[in-house]
């Protein structure tokens, strides 16, 4: 078997926080990620699911080297990237890109879409194939945005549209790994379906590898090959998608699956019946 493309080993992240008690507040630390290890093979999608505040985003930021580890290692394609210097980090960034949770706050409000999506290439001192305008237009088309809006600012787009700008920016550098932190959460179902299909197509055609964070388990079921479940800074269960969904081992995973909101099955059945009847009647 080939080595995993992305490997995280014993990741720990501690944040300094103010302690409580007394008039003098002593500095204290909070362990947001507590000994997390995982591997992702090229062309696979590992979904990270779990409790809010359990450390999913922090784990993702560590793996993408946006945050320094307290301890542990991150390897890309067998190379230890945990302590890369500035120049090497630049190379790393063209391999690993991130799409964030908050669409507006992760996009510079004073920059146009064109400037936003071409910025990573400029930062990496790479040329823009075909020129900025044409390049931006084709990227916008790829993520289902109207290319005529390349000179608009983030605030002029709705939440879901803004999220697609973030995806376009990530794709701009032609990465091997894309870390998606709630990247489709703000999208309505129809756009969400488009973006999931887009992500899957890109994976099929270009062999992209994803670390995919989402709280929507139905979405995870659609896109993941493997699933890791986090709670309180630790991964409590990891396995193949269907194994985790169909035979969850950990109590927290079961709690999570039970809490998934569902449209009442009897409503669904009635709707399908009515739709079938209507189709019948039309014939």
């Amino acid at each position: 078997m080939s080595a995993p493309l992305l490997r995280a080993t014993h990741l720990v992240k501690e944040f300094p926080v103010l302690g409580t008690g007394g008039i003098v507040r002593r500095p204290d630390t909070f362990r947001a990620v507590d000994d997390v290890s995982f591997e992702i093979n090229a062309g696979d999608t590992l979904a990270l699911v779990g409790e809010s505040g359990s450390g999913k985003s922090t784990t993702a930021r560590l793996a993408a080297r946006l945050l320094d580890v307290t301890s542990g290692t991150v390897e890309l394609d067998g190379e230890d990237v945990t302590r890369l210097g500035r120049a090497d980090l630049r190379r790393f960034r063209s391999d690993v890109q991130v799409v964030f949770q908050d669409p507006y706050s992760s996009l510079n409000p004073r920059h146009t879409v064109e400037r936003i999506v071409t910025a990573p290439l400029l930062y990496q001192q790479r040329g823009i194939p075909g020129g900025a305008r044409a390049f931006t237009r084709s990227l916008m088309e790829r993520v289902g945005l109207d290319p005529d809006h390349s000179q608009k600012y983030p605030a002029q787009f709705s939440g879901g549209q803004a999220q697609r700008i973030g995806i376009a920016r990530a794709l701009a550098v032609g990465p091997r790994v894309v870390v998606c932190d709630e990247a489709v959460s703000a999208l309505d179902v129809s756009v969400q379906a488009q973006v999931i299909n887009l992500l899957r197509d890109l994976q099929r055609e270009e062999g992209l590898t994803y670390l995919f964070i989402a709280h929507d388990l139905a979405v995870v079921r659609q896109i993941a090959t493997r699933v890791a479940v986090m709670t309180q800074g630790r991964i409590v269960e990891e396995g193949d998608r269907d194994a985790v969904f169909d035979a969850p081992q950990h109590e927290y995973t079961r709690k999570l699956l039970d809490a998934v909101p569902r449209i009442r099955p009897e409503w669904e059945a009635e709707r399908r019946r009515n739709a079938a009847l209507a189709a019948e009647g039309a014939r």
Binding site: G144, L145, D146, D148, H149, K152, Q156, F157, S158, G160, Q161, V189, S190, V191, A193, Q194, I196, N197, R221, Q222
Partner: peptide
């Protein structure tokens, strides 16, 4: 798992 059905005839959106 199959191709998700995106809503047909969706507009690209944007101002």
């Amino acid at each position: 798992i199959g191709e998700l059905r995106a809503v047909a005839n969706e507009k690209n959106g944007g101002p």
